[in-house]
Amino acid sequence: MSKGPGLFADIGKSAKDLLTRDYSTDQKFSISTNSVSGVALTSTALKNGVLHAANVATQYKYRNALFDVKIDTDSNILTTVTFTEILPSTKAIASFKVPDYNSSKLEVQYFHDHATVTAAAALQQNPLIDVTATLGSPTISFGAEAGYDTTSRTFTKYNVGISVTKPDRCASIILGDKGDSIKASYLYHLNESKRSAAVGEVVRKISTNENTVTVGGLYAVDHLTNVKAKLNSNGKLGAVLQHEVLPKSIVTISGEIDTKTLDKYPRFGLSLALKP
């Protein structure tokens, strides 16, 4: 694939991930194992020790096709087939779930040095259609997306955005919610390894005249330990501590407190992910 402007979903993604990823108030324990044949087993347990979910996943690659099959404890089978280079610079992704056939979906992505276009449709009699387009380069890009319901013949969404990306920083502005919200974000990497960063985000809801400001950061204590924190204008303070106890095995401790109602107990989350 070409090194173009990227997908519309990539606009503002780095800042969003830093402010949302790993912030959780659940207690979770998971073990992932992989066999030589490519079969992966993932088990997850809640804090009471009862097995909550067990998933079996397998991947198989044949020429330009990648087959990904996942089976969970509810006997749901999710199959995703990804075809690359059927046509030059094109990727096709087909997914379907058994027994929920209504979740079947087909997506086509086209990558160019100066443009990226995607089209996705649910495989139903009256499908929902999503289309995105991004123009520019890896440094600066302009994008738009739209969703259309063929049943009601109405647009379910239409958003536009712009992104500027440098080696040590990235900024984005997205006009979303059918023009009812504006989100601006800025992420700055404090070192070349990009393991320490500062981020800021401003969201304005036009119909209600509400503004929400969120600031956060990531700091690498050492090569095994990371600390993240965020605070928004509504008084919500969150923090995350991650430590790699073993290679590819990470323990995550997260917490959240409302600084405007200190009489309430803070919420905590604990996650241990083991990958032998």
Rank of each mutant, 00 (worst) to 15 (best):
Ser103Phe: 08
Ser104Cys: 08
Val202Phe: 07
Asn55Gln: 11
Lys236Tyr: 07
Ser141Asp: 01
Gln59Asp: 07
Gln242Thr: 11
Leu7Arg: 09
Thr80Arg: 12
Pro167Gly: 09
Ser35His: 10
Gly143Ala: 06
Asn64Ser: 12
Leu7Cys: 07
Ser207Thr: 10
Tyr188Pro: 00
Gly12Pro: 01
His114Val: 13
Phe67Leu: 14
Val81Ser: 01
Lys3Phe: 11
Thr116Met: 06
Ile206Gln: 01
Phe8Cys: 07
His112Phe: 05
His52Tyr: 09
Glu85Trp: 10
Ser141Thr: 08
His114Trp: 06
Val98Phe: 13
Ile31Cys: 04
Pro138Tyr: 03
Thr165Met: 07
Ala120Tyr: 01
Leu272Thr: 09
Val108Arg: 00
Lys3Thr: 11
Ala133Pro: 01
Ile182Lys: 04
Ile11Phe: 08
Thr25Phe: 08
Val56Lys: 02
Asp26Leu: 12
Ser75Phe: 15
Asp263Val: 15
Val227Glu: 05
Tyr148Glu: 02
Tyr265Gln: 11
Lys61Phe: 03
Glu192Ser: 14
Glu256Ser: 14
Ile31Glu: 06
Leu135Thr: 01
Ala122Arg: 05
Ile173Ala: 14
Ser75Asn: 15
Asp168Pro: 00
Asp68Leu: 07
Asn234Ile: 03
Pro5Thr: 10
Lys236Ser: 12
Thr165Ala: 14
Ser103Asn: 10
Ala119Ser: 12
Ile86Met: 13
Thr156Arg: 02
Tyr62Ile: 13
Leu218Pro: 00
Gly161Ala: 05
Thr118Ser: 13
His52Ile: 01
Val131Asp: 03
Leu18His: 02
Ser104Asn: 08
Ala40Asn: 12
